[in-house]
Design a protein around this nucleic acid. Structure first.
Lengths: 190, 190
DNA sequence: ACGATAACTGACCGATCGGTCAGCGGCTGT
DNA sequence: ACAGCCGCTGACCGATCGGTCAGTTATCGT
């Protein structure tokens, strides 16, 4: 009852995000789950399959959010809604987001990771659609990479439960501030 | 003459930063250098020694900058000078910084990486000395992690030579903006 | 009572890992 | 001419990697 595929997924996610995909062995995942390596490979055909199962939910959710953004791109309200949803997304899938950002480059040719990289690229394209000055590219990159780093950095990893709302508000404020020149419906030129 | 220890250091740095330390084999470094694995281990006693040589210059430079910051902490000019030096540091040692940020957690118990982590911690402590609200912690983390991600992200990796000044100016502006509530000599409370 | 299926395991496989070692050719000082 | 060092190499080592497979146990439908 206890040791299920879902448990393995959660354990693998934590290990992949903190130690890295390449540095995490199936043996270690099995140990943490109290199983043998063979049992891990019974639930997931391969290490790569386990990785896919680990990150798939976050990818699908991000696709939803990105689709909504692209659909309502013209309205300022749509962009504001995106930022709010995006912050919730980062908070909910913090470990997955951290994996994409930190290991996305090294895990290319893994199909599901390529998919995640493509989404990041779509998001970047959206924000760089009208103008692509270096500063605005950099604002976007700092917002994305910075948020990902923050939420998985060892010191900031542990939020008290009563601080999560404050963290959410602070993150939303900072990201809005960072992306203001880009998300502003008018007066983009500097 | 051509294949020297310094060449190996540069090759290893590029590979460690993009593919990750654990995922980079000595064999691959040797191949890229046109040498055998044994030759790599002739120049560097072990893979870990190579890692240390790879990141040591960046660590020493960061210690200098951090020391100067702590010495001149009281003066607004000192803090402004730090930000400028810090931006130059990030631009010059972009790959090393990216390694610290992305792989610092997974490479603990490697002494030289622990040293780097300690420096990041010292830096964080400095900015969190007077006040440690979640928002300000988050501003610091986003500035640091975001800058590191930006400068090694695949799309932004290639700056045109004539754009590097613009990139520097943009980075300095954004970081100043991000850390403004913290670096402001007065009126820190919110 | 009995087959089917699910969950799991240890033994084993080839490949690759970091690292050791004896020895190679070439250059230099004497 | 010869000793010594430097850069380098292939062969080899034990450990670990991801993955396969035959087999065990337990639960469930009939």
């Amino acid at each position: 009852m206890s040791t299920s595929a879902e448990d393995l997924r959660a354990i693998a996610l934590a290990e992949f995000a903190t130690a890295g995909y390449a540095a995490t062995s199936l043996h270690r995942i099995a140990d943490l789950a109290g199983l043998s390596k063979s049992s891990v490979l019974y639930h997931y055909a391969s290490k790569e399959t386990l990785l896919e199962a680990t990150v798939a939910p976050a990818i699908h959710r991000m696709e939803e959010i990105l689709g909504a953004l692209e659909a309502s791109a013209l309205t300022p309200a749509g962009r504001a809604a995106f930022l709010s949803e995006f912050v919730d997304f980062i908070l909910q899938y913090r470990r997955e987001v951290n994996m994409f950002i930190n290991q996305g480059q090294s895990l290319v040719d893994v199909p599901v990771i390529d998919e995640a990289n493509a989404i990041v690229h779509r998001l970047a394209d959206f924000f760089a659609a009208n103008t692509a000055s270096i500063e605005e590219k950099m604002r976007f990159g700092i917002a994305l990479g910075g948020a990902a780093y923050m939420l998985c950095s060892p010191e900031s990893m542990a939020f008290d439960a009563d601080q999560v709302d404050e963290a959410r508000a602070a993150l939303l404020k900072i990201l809005t501030e960072l992306l203001a020149p880009v998300t502003a419906p008018v007066a983009i030129g500097e």
